[in-house]
């Protein structure tokens, strides 16, 4: 069964009405297969964030279809939508979006709690996910006691703890210095190597170079869809 993880057709998104109408997306079609590593690049205002929010089921398109793991997301009710966000998607934000004053491990446990996993199992899997991102020793720290890179890695652990089909990252390195960027990208390389599907958006070429496939977005349209051989971490500076 070779069903694509993600398939969008003729996606459009319009904000506002009348004079103030903004066409953020003007018919984007895109298919992502299991195990792929896709980087979406574009300048600010190109619609890449809008696309990402729709892919993450955080926002709804004005028109077009979105099949997530073969399910039409636009037809889901709130309850099923919550389930889809919980089980199928791991979303990583540019601003980390950890719950404040809550320990790293509790943050990572959160999606599992909403999935109904038992507390003991939850703790075990959360610690395992933190181990994957190399932060097992910081499990008890609260977000404000962690550096930006560490916070983003906690967010990555939170995104992958439910073992979703799709990892979505909205400018995951946008708020990070080069060293932390490297840490986070290494985690992504590892995850992709172990078979996870990753879609990220970025405006930094060195981040885009690490992906297997590069999509360029201008004015809400895909203008380039390129398969490339990723530049591996070893060849990158450090």
């Amino acid at each position: 069964m070779n069903r694509p993880v993600l398939e969008v057709r003729d996606l459009t998104k319009v904000y506002g009405t009348g004079e103030a109408t903004v066409h953020a997306l003007r018919g984007v079609s895109l298919t992502v297969q299991r195990g792929d590593y896709v980087a979406i690049m574009g300048s600010s205002g190109s619609g890449k964030s809008t696309l990402m929010n729709i892919l993450g089921a955080l926002d709804v398109p004005s028109d077009g279809t979105y099949l997530l793991d073969g399910v039409d997301v636009s037809r889901l009710a709130d309850r099923q939508l919550a389930l889809a966000r919980n089980r199928l998607i791991g979303f990583i934000f540019q601003a980390f979006n950890l719950i404040p004053r809550t320990s790293a491990v509790a943050n990572v446990e959160l999606p599992l709690a909403y999935a109904g996993v038992k507390p003991k199992e939850r703790r075990r899997r959360a610690l395992a996910a933190l181990d994957v991102v190399g932060l097992a020793d910081r499990a008890r720290h609260e977000p404000n006691q962690l550096s930006g890179g560490q916070q983003q890695r906690v967010a990555v652990a939170r995104a992958l703890v439910t073992e979703p089909a799709l990892l979505l990252a909205d400018e995951p390195t946008g708020n990070l210095d080069s060293r932390s960027t490297e840490d986070v990208l290494n985690v992504f390389d590892q995850l992709n190597a172990s078979g996870r599907t990753i879609v990220l958006i970025t405006h930094e070429t060195e981040v885009g170079d690490r992906a297997k496939r590069l999509i360029r977005l201008v004015d809400g349209r895909v203008i380039q869809d390129l398969r490339q051989s990723p530049i591996l971490a070893g060849r990158h500076s450090r």
Binding site: G56, L58, D78, R79, A82, L83, A84, R85, N86, R87, F91, F93, N97, L98, I99, P100, L110, P111, Y114, A115, R158, T162
Partner: peptide, 16 residues
């Protein structure tokens, strides 16, 4: 509100 947004993005149903 922002925290509620995060929780929803992580898959919390409205009722919870």
């Amino acid at each position: 509100t922002r925290e509620i947004g995060i929780r929803k993005a992580l898959g919390a149903p409205r009722r919870v």
